[in-house]
Simulated scan of single mutants.
Amino acid sequence: MAASAQAAAEPKAAATTTTGGGFWTQQPSGADLERHYPFFALFFGVRGRAVLLCVVQRDGSLADCDIESEEPEGWGFGQAAAEITRYFRADPRLAGGYVRAPVRFEVAE
């Protein structure tokens, strides 16, 4: 099968962040999230979510993130969410504190 035909048949990812509190100054774009969608989950059309607990740095970046939860387990959504933390920025006034970063991964219809 030609590469272009394979690409056309592959599912398309749509990933979003769901956050509360209004403390985000920057969030990952859909393209950022799409690049990190777990491969097998995308291939099989599995949706998922993860929640990370992270420390806010002085510049608003996130560090020392722990995966608090991921659903469903075993598909790589926690690790994928951890990989996109570099695209988040929180209000620098929260430096030294903790924030929760919930991320939802969905396959586009």
Rank of each mutant, 00 (worst) to 15 (best):
T18V: 15
T18H: 12
T18Q: 15
T19Y: 11
G20T: 15
G20A: 10
G22I: 00
G22K: 00
G22C: 03
G22N: 03
G22W: 01
F23P: 01
W24V: 00
W24I: 02
T25D: 02
Q26D: 13
Q26W: 07
Q27M: 12
Q27R: 05
Q27K: 06
P28F: 04
P28T: 08
P28D: 06
S29Y: 03
S29C: 07
G30R: 09
G30T: 15
G30N: 11
A31R: 13
A31F: 13
D32Q: 05
D32E: 12
L33M: 00
L33I: 00
E34W: 00
R35L: 11
H36E: 14
Y37I: 12
P38L: 02
F39I: 05
F40Q: 05
F40N: 02
A41L: 04
F43Y: 12
F43D: 14
F43P: 00
F43L: 15
F44I: 03
G45M: 03
V46P: 02
V46N: 03
R49P: 00
R49Y: 04
R49A: 06
A50C: 00
V51E: 15
V51T: 15
V51I: 15
L52M: 07
L52R: 02
L52I: 09
L53S: 08
L53Q: 06
L53E: 11
C54Q: 12
C54S: 11
C54P: 11
V55A: 15
V56I: 07
R58C: 01
R58V: 09
R58Q: 15
D59K: 01
D59W: 07
D59M: 03
G60A: 14
G60R: 14
S61H: 01
S61D: 14
L62H: 05
C65K: 04
C65I: 12
I67C: 09
I67A: 09
I67E: 13
E68K: 14
E68F: 10
S69P: 03
S69W: 06
E70M: 03
E70G: 05
E70W: 10
E71V: 15
E71W: 12
P72D: 13
P72S: 11
G74Q: 07
G74Y: 08
W75L: 11
W75P: 05
G76V: 05
G76N: 04
G76Q: 03
F77M: 01
F77S: 02
G78R: 08
G78C: 08
Q79S: 06
A80C: 01
A81N: 07
A81G: 03
A81I: 14
E83F: 07
E83W: 08
E83T: 06
E83A: 12
I84V: 15
R86S: 11
R86C: 02
Y87Q: 10
Y87E: 14
Y87I: 02
F88R: 06
R89G: 04
R89H: 07
R89V: 08
R89Q: 08
A90Y: 05
D91A: 11
R93K: 09
R93P: 00
R93G: 02
L94S: 02
A95W: 08
G96L: 14
G96D: 14
G97L: 11
Y98F: 09
Y98P: 01
